[in-house]
C-alpha cells in the first residue's frame, strides 16, 4: 500500500513539474488542451502537431507539442472560489425522461467512476398508490442550505459563490456524516481502491477526478466544463433533452438544443423542488411529468438485467408483473 502511495506521489510531482513549465507564460492563447483529459476522455490526434517553445522554470527552452498545451485543472485552493458572477441551476423535465440512462453513463465516464458509483441516479417514483409513476433523475441538488456542508467536521465539503457544493477528497476524512445528513441520498463513498483512481492526472475538486479511496464524492455540476462554456456531461448526453442547465442570475437554462428563460419554464410548467419542505433550498428544479412524451414502461425497455432488477420492488413494476401473471 505504501508503495502505491509513493507512486501516486511521484506521478503527481511529475505532472506538476511539467505544469510549472507554463509559469513562463510564453503560451497564453490558442488551443489549450489537457493532456490528462485527452487520455481520460479518449480524444484522438491525427498526427504530431506544431511545436511551441516554452521556458522551463530552470530557464531552459523546451519544445512542446501544441496539442498538449493545457489549462490546468483548478486546484484545491482555487476551487473554493466559484465562477465569478454565476449561480448555477438545473431544471429536469420529468415529462421527457424515459430512463435512457445516458446521463448516468456519460457522467460515469466523465468522472472516471466505476460501475458501482453513480453521481446521477434514476429512480422510478410513485408518490402514492393511485398517482402516476414517473422516472426521476437525481443529481446533487447543490442546496443553498446544504446540510452536508454544515455537518462536515473538517470543511472538506464546501459551498461556493456560484452555488456549487464541492468535495475536497484530499481533506475528507471519510466520516460519512455528510452522507447521513443529506436527505436526498446524493453522496457516495469510495469503499475500496478502484483501478480508475490510478489515472495520471492532478487532482481537482472541480473534476472529482481522480477518486480517492475512503472518501466521499458526489455530483459536482461539472464546474470544470462550465469554465470552458460547456454543459455538464449529463446535460449534453441526454438524448431527450431532459436536463436543462444554466445561470439562474441570467435567468436562462439550456439543454444544449433548446434555450429557455428559467422563470418562464418554471412558471409555465409549474416547476417545483423535490422535498422542498425540508428547507434545504435545492438548486435543482423539476418540471412535473405532464403531457409525457413516453409511457412510463418504455423506461424499462432495453435495460441491463442488473439495472432493470433495481426497480423490481417498486409498486409499479410489481403491479405490472401481477397483471402479466393474471393473464
Amino acid at each position: 500500500m505504501g508503495d502505491k502511495k509513493n507512486d501516486d506521489c511521484n506521478s503527481r510531482r511529475k505532472f506538476l513539474k511539467l505544469g510549472l513549465l507554463a509559469g513562463a507564460g510564453t503560451v497564453a492563447s490558442g488551443a489549450l488542451v489537457t493532456a490528462g483529459a485527452l487520455i481520460a476522455k479518449g480524444h484522438g490526434t491525427a498526427d504530431a502537431g506544431e511545436k511551441i517553445k516554452v521556458l522551463t522554470t530552470t530557464g531552459e527552452v523546451m519544445e512542446v507539442d501544441r496539442n498538449f498545451l493545457t489549462l490546468a485543472p483548478v486546484g484545491r485552493k482555487e476551487s473554493h472560489i466559484g465562477l465569478p458572477g454565476r449561480k448555477f441551476v438545473m431544471v429536469i423535465d420529468l415529462a421527457r425522461c424515459k430512463n435512457a440512462r445516458k446521463c448516468v453513463e456519460e457522467c460515469q465516464k466523465g468522472h472516471n467512476l466505476s460501475k458501482d458509483q453513480e453521481f446521477m441516479k434514476v429512480y422510478l417514483l410513485q408518490d402514492s398508490e393511485k398517482t402516476a409513476p414517473y422516472w426521476f433523475p437525481k443529481p446533487c441538488y447543490h442546496c443553498d442550505n446544504p446540510q452536508c456542508v454544515s455537518v462536515c467536521p473538517v470543511g472538506a465539503t464546501y459551498k461556493r459563490s456560484d452555488g456549487i457544493v464541492l468535495i475536497d477528497n484530499e481533506r475528507c476524512i471519510g466520516c460519512k456524516f455528510c452522507i447521513t445528513a443529506c436527505p436526498y441520498s446524493t453522496r457516495t463513498f469510495s469503499w475500496k481502491a478502484e483501478e480508475a483512481f490510478e489515472i495520471d492526472q492532478p487532482y481537482s475538486p472541480e473534476k472529482s477526478v481522480p477518486g480517492v479511496e475512503g472518501t466521499v464524492s458526489k455530483c459536482d455540476f461539472c464546474p470544470d466544463l462550465a469554465r470552458e462554456g460547456k454543459l455538464p456531461y449529463c446535460v449534453s448526453a441526454c438524448p431527450m433533452g431532459v436536463i436543462y442547465f444554466g445561470d439562474i442570475d441570467e435567468d436562462v437554462v439550456t439543454n444544449g438544443l433548446e434555450t429557455y428563460k428559467f422563470s418562464d419554464l418554471i412558471r409555465d410548467r409549474s416547476g417545483y423542488r423535490h422535498l422542498d419542505n425540508l428547507g434545504t433550498r435545492p438548486n435543482v428544479y423539476y418540471l412535473p411529468p405532464v403531457d409525457r412524451q413516453f409511457p412510463v414502461d418504455r423506461g424499462l425497455d432495453g435495460l441491463d438485467e442488473e439495472v432493470r432488477s433495481r426497480y423490481d420492488n417498486t409498486p409499479y413494476v410489481k403491479n405490472l408483473k401481477n397483471k402479466e401473471a393474471g393473464k
Binding site: 511539467l18 505544469g19 513549465l21 507554463a22 497564453a28 490528462g36 487520455i39 498538449f68 490546468a72 469554465r227
Partner: peptide, 27 residues
Amino acid sequence: MKTIKSGILLFVTLFLGNGLVFAQSGD
C-alpha cells in the same frame, strides 16, 4: 474565456508521443 485566462494558471504538459494517446484509447 476571459474568466479562464484571468483566473487560472496556464499549464503545459508533455507526453512521450502520440503512441501513448493511442495506447490508452484502445483498438
